[in-house]
Design a protein around this nucleic acid. Structure first.
Length: 203
DNA sequence: TGCCAGGCCCTCTTTAGGGCCTT
């Protein structure tokens, strides 16, 4: 059985290195490409949320102040994920917050990440944009809720990933795409793509 | 004072620069 956890953070800024903290996390668990479970929580990191972030996400200071402590949320999130490999849209961003918030909670972060932006650039070079909303429109994916809320974006990323898994099966005859293939695919040079996927294709 | 990320990709590239993508 192939398990993948799709994760999305809402935060107060672009990077923890500049003091930004997570305000919400959502995780959608896929087994063999099907959604089987979800985790979502606002989280209180004890920081002020800039107005433009509230305008962007709809997450305000009162909401976060009433939320569980960030450390408790990360403990629950880490337990939910276990050793399941992770996927995110622009994974470099979410991986930094995953690692930073877990480190604050004295928890290890050993899960490998795959990135749907990099995968999309490989699988759909014809897409006009690889932003999450643009890809949803490009593929005709149904709406999942307010954009820039963690669960809605994680659900949309999961739907995009499901579309990618279907593309791998239908266009490239890869019967059981797994996280290891996604990691190889996202870093594979374009000319080498057919050879890589041929190795994974059903004989 | 002015600026502030960073990894990846593309190309009028490779002794580099600019755009994308995430909040």
């Amino acid at each position: 059985m192939s398990r993948i956890a799709v994760i999305d953070f809402e935060t107060t800024g672009m990077t923890p290195q500049q003091g930004a903290r997570a305000t919400e996390v959502a995780i959608v668990l896929l087994e063999d490409g099907r959604v089987v479970d979800r985790f979502q929580s606002l989280m209180n990191g004890g920081v002020w949320i800039p107005p433009f972030i509230t305008q962007l996400t709809g997450i305000g200071n009162a909401m976060v102040q009433a939320a569980p402590a960030a450390g408790q949320v990360m403990q629950d999130a880490a337990r939910f994920v276990g050793d399941t490999p992770l996927v995110a849209h622009n994974a470099a961003f979410d991986r930094k917050f995953w690692e930073a918030e877990l480190a604050r909670a004295d928890l290890p972060a050993a899960q490998p990440f795959a990135c749907t932006v990099l995968l999309s650039r490989r699988l759909y070079p014809e897409a006009p944009s690889h932003r999450l909303g643009a890809l949803a429109a490009f593929h005709g994916l149904p709406p999942t809720g307010r954009a820039h809320r963690a669960l809605a974006d994680a659900e949309m990323t999961a739907a995009l990933l499901q579309r990618m898994l279907a593309t791998l099966r239908e266009r490239w005859q890869v019967a059981r795409p797994d996280h290891a293939l996604l990691c190889a695919l996202q870093r594979c040079a374009k000319p080498a793509l057919p050879a890589l996927l041929a190795r994974y294709a059903d004989a």
